[in-house]
Structure formats: C-alpha cells, structure tokens
Design a protein around this nucleic acid. Structure first.
Lengths: 231, 231
DNA sequence: CAGTGATGTCAATGCCTTGGACTATAGTTT
DNA sequence: AAACTATAGTCCAAGGCATTGACATCACTG
C-alpha cells in the first residue's frame, strides 16, 4: 500500500562534485536565484533532498564551487592580446559576459573568489600585462586589484540586478525612468535638463565607458602614447 | 495557568515605519546580515513576530526602505565642493563611508535604488557638476551613471565582503595571501614576482586609486587642465 | 567471505516568510 | 456619549529551507 512507487536508489558514484555543480548552475540559469535550494538541487539530480551534503559541506561550500566554475568558463581558451591594455580589457569583458550569462549564479557567489587555477592564470596574465607596461611591483599589485575588482564588482552588480524577480526588475527600470521624467525643474534642474538622456543609457556602453576611462588613465600613467604592441 | 506572563499588547501607533527601519538598521549593524529576520525584528521592537507586516508588505519592501535610509545618511548635509570633480569624488566617498559603516544593511540592499529625495538630490548635484564641466546631455547622463554606479557597486561589494561571517572573511584573506605566496614561479611568474606586494594592497587606497583613475579621465576629457574652481 | 568505509536515504529539528483570522482601540459619526 | 469602523497589533498555521544524525547498501580489502 504505502510506497507510491518510490524512486530507485541511485547507484554508488552517480553523484560527483562536477555533476552537482553543473546541475546547480543549470538550475540557477533556468529558475533563478530565488528558486534555488538544496532540496531542489537534490531532486533535480534524481537523488535524495540531502544527497548533496555528502559532497559539499553546506550550501556555501557548493556556491563557492559554482563561483569557481564561472571563472573557469570566463577564462577558458583565453590568450593575451598583442597590446597589454587590450589584454586587461578583454579579461574584464570576459568576466562580464560570463556573469551576464549566469546572473543568478553570479549574484549568489557575491564577492567570493576561489583562487582556483583559472583565476590564478587570469591574475598572472593581468599582472604580467601591467609589469610589461613598466609598472613596478607595488603599483602593478594596486592596479591589478583595481582592474580585477572593478570587473568583478561591476559585473556582479549587474548580474545581481538581472537576477531580481522580473516584476521587481521591470518596476525598478520603469520607476527610474518615471522619477527622472517627473523631476521638478526647480529643485532638480540638472536631472530635468537631461531627463530624456538618462533612461537611454545602454548597459553595454556604460560598462565599456567605465572600463575605457579606467584603462585610459592607466595607459597614460604607463607612458605609452599609443597602441604599441606588447611583447 | 497557561499564559506565562504574556507581553502586554503594544499601544496603537507604537510602531512607525521610521522606528522599524531604525531598529532594523540597528539589528543589522549589531548582529549582521545572517542573523536578521522578520521575527527577530518584531521581537526587537517589543512587538509580535509578524507586526512589521502591517507597515511593510514584506521583507523586500522593508530592505528597500533600509537602503533608502542609508542613502539619506550618506548625503546628509552635503554641500558641493568648489571644484566640480571634487564634488563627484566626495559624493562617492560618502557612499562608501556609509556602506562600510553599515555593511550588513548595504549587503542586503544589493543593487536596489529607491529614487528617494536624498538620492535625487545627490544625482542632481552630480549631473550639475558634469554639465558645469561642459559635458553635453548625452555624455553627462553616461558619465553620471559611470560614477554613481561605480561608487554604489564598489562600495556594495566591499560591504558584502565585510558582512561575511568573520571566519569566512578571515579565511578568504588568509587564503588569498597564501595562494599568492605559494604561486609557482614557472606557471605564474608574475604573481610570484609581486607576491609580497599583493597582500599589502590597502582597501582605502584601492578605492581612492580606482576613483582617481576614473575621475582623471573624466577631467581630462572635460578639457580642464587643473583644479579650476567651478561655479 | 567478513569487515569497513563511503555514499545514498530517511526522519527530524528549528528556523524562516508569509497569509488569514481575530481583537482591541483611536478616531469619527451621530 | 454611544455606536461604528478602519487600523494596528496579535495569534495561528502552512509550507519551505538548511542542516544533522541514524540507517542501509554496496564496492572494495584483507
């Protein structure tokens, strides 16, 4: 009577950390951050709700592994560009592209980094670019952190925004547009003056602009006057 | 018999949105983001666990109000600096200072903004600075978003990091330092070369450096050659 | 072929968010 | 002043989540 067809036990070794991370990433991509939970993940794997705990010590541990997977994906097949500043820019763009492709996962990983092999390789490439540009150790360390943190935080923030519930996100966008348009010319003259331009700012251009401003200053400081190839 | 001294009912009007937000902020500051919950907030107010729902439609709604409070605090008593670029810089620093003073609250508000009066006033000031510097509407809108988003996302990221559990945070810092120090000179020569400088990057300097690089590019683009006062 | 350790399953705990029903009361109306 | 009403605080309950500890099964080992 009881057992209304219970699922057959999964064979030993059916669950691997790799499979679990992949499934978690798929779940996050498909259903969003809010819908993600350990029980769901277990069920999606065709396993018990608590099976994942045999491979990860907890939710946090798992999400860290997901974050690592994202960085792997971001830096896969990366090769340095001829000019050092382009290398920096490309690495930043890759981080952003990956985070925007997996917004829920990126939002949940937050400001955590893993020092996995992918990240270390990217860091080495960035630092190499900066040292090749002539910066000394102290300054290279600082500028590496500036560029890397910029890319991670900016992309992470965008991802977090995109992983809001669709209604919330829509309300946010519409609300902003409305608030600008309704700005009182007396108390907020400058917002009023550019009220039509504000909602038209494109996220891609915005990122490129910020990145460009940052890198321009760095290029200038390096003493390079143009796009001299970097060997 | 039953009722082991139940709390007397709170007088009508004892709970106001303002008091609730203040208490939430205090709770977040004292106990951290992980310990925050609606029941706890209710109890901290000396009320029922669910009392807050009479004033906010849900947890999210409440956190949005907290975010608004943070921005109010950030921009309180702000007055523009003589030079336009200093105005931009100061506003960014204020956002960061406030977020770092309330990391848990900042981390939970995430990438949400509220278009409250404080935020609108700050936006107007920033945009005014940019227009005063000679940028046209399109460019002023873009640069406003660059600077504002930079400050919010960077500060938010730092805040999120600081609101991690203390052990997690410590492990993160120690792990990074260790990973750099252990970097293999063959596969990661550049990390190895500056391994002693990397852990020494100071967060305050890091922010100031990033902000400076960004603003330098903007000042340069404006055509200003120096700190000409802005009227 | 018994032992053992790893891996999947089950049951249970305590917390959370949220919704609905209930109740006391301040302010309004008569 | 008495009745009314909407609001604000309370109670209760449903359903979900993270995590833990006990149990079962299975591959390998000596």
């Amino acid at each position: 009577m009881s057992n209304p067809q219970r699922r057959p036990r999964l064979p030993r070794g059916a669950l691997t950390p790799d499979l679990i991370v992949s499934t978690a990433l798929r779940l996050l991509d498909e259903d969003g951050a809010a819908a993600f939970s350990m029980p769901r993940l277990g069920r999606a794997l065709g396993a018990d709700q608590t099976a994942v705990y045999r491979h990860f010590s907890g939710r946090d541990d798992l999400l860290l592994a997901v974050a690592d997977r994202l960085l792997q994906e971001a830096f896969e097949d990366f090769t340095a560009a001829p000019y050092w500043a382009d290398t920096l820019a490309e690495l930043c763009r890759r981080i952003r592209a990956t985070y925007l492709a997996h917004p829920a996962a990126a939002a949940l990983s937050g400001p955590r980094t893993t020092r996995g092999t992918a990240e270390m390789r990217a860091a080495d490439t960035m630092i190499g670019a900066l040292i090749g540009a002539g910066f000394d150790g102290t300054r290279a360390a600082m500028l590496y952190r500036v560029v890397a943190d910029f890319a991670l935080l900016w992309s992470g923030g965008e991802a977090a925004f995109h992983s809001l519930a669709p209604e919330t996100k829509a309300a946010e966008v519409a609300g902003a547009s409305l608030a600008y348009r309704a700005a009182d010319p007396d108390s907020h003259p400058h917002i009023h003056a550019i009220r039509d331009h504000l909602p038209k700012v494109d996220p891609d251009e915005l990122f490129e602009t910020a990145l460009g401003l940052l890198l321009d200053s760095i290029v200038r400081e390096s003493g390079d006057d143009g796009k001299r190839p970097w060997s």
